[in-house]
Amino acid sequence: MTQVPCAADRRAVLMGAVSLAALPWTAFAARADANADGDLALRAAIREAVGDRQAVDGGIALRAPALAENGGQVPISVLVDTPQTPADHAVAIHIFATRNPTPGVASFRLTEKLGRAEVQTRIRLAQEQTVIVLAQMNDGRVLRAAADVRVTTGGCLT
């Protein structure tokens, strides 16, 4: 097992629990479990943010690097395609890191007074994964965008 300086994620912890004697098969099983676990956490985080509302792809310009050298500082830029007026505006932007121990990264609640539904932040990514952004609109629609980010050095998350 490779050394994990900041106990990168549950998967690493699980694989550690399987110990040095871990055969590829056991490791694979642990990995599958961790993934299922991660997906559950992701679904819970999404449900907490937007409820059971079905998200529609598009309407968001999501900028993220295809390759992040440092998983501890990954620049993310989200611009929702809306005039951000009282009649048509984004009420929230949610950022999810699908393979982080805590998939729900941040939520930004916005008002139409901003005039532009754009937020730029820097986030931690524990490993290579997909970043998902959801935007809740004032009419109840939920927009979705996703970007795959490869990570050279994990973000010391856990």
């Binding site: 805590t102 930004f108 609640r109 008002t111 901003l114 532009r116 937020v119 932040t121």
Partner: peptide, 21 residues
């Protein structure tokens, strides 16, 4: 104008850019 909630994934030394009219 903005009410942001950070969980575990925001980087050290949080840096944010936003726009306002």
């Amino acid at each position: 104008l903005i009410d942001a909630e950070f969980r575990n994934g925001t980087s050290a030394n949080p840096y944010h850019v936003f726009f306002m009219r």
